[in-house]
Design a protein around this nucleic acid. Sequence first.
RNA 1: GGUCCGGUAGUUCAGUUGGUUAGAACGCCAGCCUGUCACGCUGGAGGUCGUGAGUUCGAGCCUCAUCCGGAUCGCCA
Length: 585
Amino acid sequence: MNGLTRTNYCADTEGIGKTVVVGGYVQKIRDIGNLIFIDLRDRTGIVQLAFDDNTDRAVFEKARSCRGEFVLLARGVVRERESKNKELKTGDIEVFVDDLRILSKAQTPPFEILNDTNVNEELRLKYRYLDLRRNVLQNNIIIRSKIAKAARDYFADNGFIEIETPMMIKSTPEGARDYIVPSRIHNGSFYALPQSPQIYKQLLMIAGFDRYIQLARCFRDEDLRADRQPEFTQIDLEMSFVDVEDILSMAEGFIKYLFKTVLDADIPTPLPRMSYKDAMERYGTDKPDTRFGMEIQNMTDMVRDSEFVVFRSAIEAGGSVRAIVVPDAAAVYTRKEVDKLVDYAKGIGAKGLAYVRWADEEPNASFKKFFTHDEIASLLSGVGAKRGDIVLIVADKDSVTLPVLGALRLVTAKRMDMIPDGWNFLWITDFPFFEYNAETEHWDAMHHPFTMPKDECVQYLDSDPGKVIAKAYDLVLNGIELSSGSIRINDYELQQKMFESLGLTDEEIEAKFGFLVEAYKYGAAPHGGMGIGLDRLAMLMTGCDSLRDVTAFPKVQNASELMSQAPGKGDKAQLDELGIMITEK
RNA sequence: GGUCCGGUAGUUCAGUUGGUUAGAACGCCAGCCUGUCACGCUGGAGGUCGUGAGUUCGAGCCUCAUCCGGAUCGCCA
């Protein structure tokens, strides 16, 4: 670059008396007449460039002409500052510049490049390359890179082979909606982008690779959330000659290594476990946040004889009455706000929400007409409530009471600010194999149809599908699902039977999974694996609450990308070639 | 697809019951300033009030539609 070669990153500049060459973006200019300071920024941080009346006039004038975000290369001697800045890593030194190159001028950016920004995210995403200049965002991306490296290192050290699987594959039924890619050669046919490399990694096990890993891009055409992007990355792995325990301990080893390497945090292993059934009954969700208590309590027996029709009819219909106690909430939740909770509960499927708001001496129960003073007192002591608490009660089928209270538990805990920091990992095990779909009146696979049922459950496949437990497991961190996996069926006859239980006809099985069933006829070791969400790991490990903050070029809620404006309309020639005609929706 | 929230200088926001010329801070431009680091001082430029209809003598403000972004429910084997 015009005879100058960079010697130091900005924040790594050191050695008083040394001549250095630094390069970066102009963060800030302070022009004090015969004295100019420029804060120069690169991905490591900031160093101050200094110019004074001993500076060559041409260099001085060049410095004066600089503006924010100009790209500079500056040579100079490192010297101690006359007045130091304790806020800055390089606050004790500055570079006294004798040669300055303006490598690139820059327009005034639409927003200032500041770590602590409150600029509208929409604008930041439109100019994502400017947003990404901010050190906080760069650090997130760097941590993400370290996570990926830790994964490759750990699994390579444990004998895993990194193998790429195709991105253009055949659409698989069930599961999420596929993104599809039209084929030019096969007019009218489409590839699908993989929702995960599931089938391919099983085939790699059949091929005998024994241990596979891939940082796999996955695609799901479903609505977005803060923790859901339509394309995302999984640390995808599969192992042969294993059962559940082998995979869990391999994954635990990785988690331990990862957190030590990237965050220098010690994660005690083995990680705690909870069955799906316990998770649902105690937390109303299959991904409980166990950083705080407030578990769901079963009040059914306490109110079994009550006259209150809401409670009684729920119980008589085979349901339950359950509650959570929100400690010290009466001071925070006014009557009006409790009403909002009632609306919220109704919005997520409850018929209603009974409550006791115990602010004053006398607890105020929404159902006090139906209970005596003593009965209410005994209910309160039964659930362990004290004065100042609010008790939220739902009476319905378990499939309503549990998830509703689980959601209320999270909402109120956030509002009460009672969720401590920490790394609370939890394995959820013993998932049901089937999930009844009331709409189609079918049993669907809860995990996926290749999941191995527990040995002792195979006998219930026909008689009582709801009773079949799968060799499937999820890893949950602070209430967010990080990972999901299972042992796969490696026996083609059993696989055939599972497909039949799912209501697939022989023709459907043959058309959709024929090659997979065929493959298992040629011998397969017991195998299983999991996919760990790299994006979510990065989000949690950087303390962010959106995947957008750990993704270089994320998509927004309607799955478009604001910088490039993707997706775009296909042009006429492209569509003609593919034989595609667009109809108005 | 439903519900809710938001959209006013480049940015972040304020804008009274609908009423004269829509303000502030930061940023930007120019000048001055020898130790700044949120530099300071002086002056200046900068607005399709997301868009389109409607109500009204008069709309940033009220109504409807629509676009964009976010949260949430559905959805995500």
